[in-house]
Amino acid sequence: MKELLLLIAGSILVNNFVLSRFLGICPFLGVSQRLDTALSMGAATTFVLTMAGAATWAVQSYLLVPWGLGFLQTLAFIIIIAALVQLVEMIILKTNPVLYRALGIFLPLITTNCAVLGLAILAAGKGYNLVETSVFGFGVGLGFTLALVMMAGIRSNLEYADIPAPLRGAPIALITAGLLSLAFTGFSGLISM
C-alpha cells in the first residue's frame, strides 16, 4: 500500500509527465485557456490513462511476451489505446450524455496524447504488475490534471497582463510552463523510485 501511495505521489510531483518528461504537451498548451475545460480534459485523460494502463498490461503479459511478439509493442499499444478511447467515448455517450457534451472534442484527441502511449511503454519497461500499472496511470493522470489546472489558472490571469507584443500567445505560455517546471524541479529527490 505504501509503495502504491509513493508511486502516485511520485508521478504527480517528482516525475510529473507534463513538466518533467514533456509528455502531453499538445493538450497542455492547447486546452489550458480556461479552468473548466482544463478540469474536464484532465478528468477524461486520467480515466483513459488508468484504463489504458490495465489494458496494455494485459496485452503485454498475455499476448506479446508469451508469443515473443515484443517488436509489435508500439503497433499493438496504439491500436489498443485508439480502440479504448473509442469505447470510452461510446460508454460515456450512452450512460452520461451531459458529460459527453462537456468533454466533446477532447475525447477523441486523447488517442494522440503521447502521455497515454508513453505511460504504456514506460510501465511495460519497468515490469509493473496490473495493480501497479493502473495506479501509475491514475497518478500520471492526476499529475497531468494538476499541471493543466495550474497552467489554466495562470493563463487566465495573463490575459490582463501587459505582455510585449512578440511574446503574446504561445511564447509567454511556454515561458510560464518553463517557470512552473522550474518550480517542480524542487520536488526532485523527494521520492526516489
Binding site: 511556454l174 518553463g178 524541479t185
Partner: peptide
C-alpha cells in the same frame, strides 16, 4: 533540465 526546454522554445518563438 526540463525548464530549459520550455524557456528556450518560448524565447526562440518570441
Amino acid at each position: 533540465l526540463p525548464p530549459g526546454g520550455f524557456l528556450t522554445m518560448g524565447v526562440v518563438l518570441g
